[in-house]
């Protein structure tokens, strides 16, 4: 069961609907592993529901009622997007993340994700990089792999899917969320024994600390 949870701000943003698409998939991934946070979200939805009850009703809706109540079954609701086919990613990822990855990459096969070299023993697949600066990546790191010491251009959220890693703030295993504020600089090290796959959501690319790593990343495409 998850030991590290999203900050209150992210859970509240998920319950209220204020978070963006990529934060919502990261939180839903954590919630799959974390019954306590699911209960917290449900509690906040009860609070919002009670506030909905207390709203001053809009009169304009009354006449629609009379017309619409008659035949709810005659209206239909739009179908959901195409369901993701089963692939090797299904074994390690919760449903909302499988769907998200499928929509962004067209595959649910781990080995067919757009992996590229990131560092020794570490691969990265970019799922989203948009004009607003949002960047969503999967990392796949071999046991014992060491990430370069890096800072972040923005707050960064990570959720672990397989294996575990540690840095000076703690040990993060399956379902755990690390909220790394942009001030922190950290050097995650992957545990022995298992490949670590994690989803990372941030606003701008992390800034590698050493000049050499920065140059290397620039040459390699980031």
């Amino acid at each position: 069961m998850a030991q590290y949870h999203p900050d209150d701000e992210w859970l509240t943003g998920y319950a209220s609907g204020a978070v963006n698409e990529q934060t919502s998939v990261l939180v839903a991934t954590h919630l799959t592993y974390c019954p306590q946070c699911r209960e917290e979200v449900a509690r906040q939805e009860e609070i919002a529901g009670a506030m909905l009850d207390a709203l001053e009703p809009e009169d304009a809706a009354a006449e629609i009622c009379a017309r619409e109540i008659a035949a709810p079954a005659s209206r239909s609701v739009g179908a959901k997007g195409e369901a993701a086919p089963r692939g090797s990613f299904n074994a390690i990822a919760p449903a909302p993340l499988i769907q998200y990855v499928y929509e962004k990459t067209g595959t649910t096969d781990i080995d067919r994700l757009p992996w590229s070299f990131y560092g020794p023993g570490i691969e990265r697949a970019i799922l989203v990089e948009d004009k607003e600066g949002a960047i969503v990546r999967l990392f796949r790191a071999q046991p014992d792999a060491k990430f370069p010491d890096h800072e972040h251009g923005s707050d960064e959220l990570t959720v672990v899917l397989t294996g575990a890693y540690s840095d000076h703030t703690g040990r993060y295993a399956v379902g755990d969320v690390q909220c790394a504020p942009k001030e922190i600089s950290h050097r995650p090290v992957v545990e022995k024994g298992e490949i670590c796959i994690a989803l990372v959501v941030s606003e701008k690319p992390a800034v590698a600390k050493s000049f050499a790593v920065r140059m290397a990343q620039r040459i390699l495409g980031r």
Binding site: G17, T32, Y33, P35, A95, P96
Partner: peptide, 18 residues
């Protein structure tokens, strides 16, 4: 015009309280 992810209550990975 954004998407929202929801937990799937039938997810085989869904963890329950001990």
């Amino acid at each position: 015009q954004s998407k929202r992810s929801e937990v799937d209550p039938n997810d085989p990975l869904l963890a329950h309280r001990e």
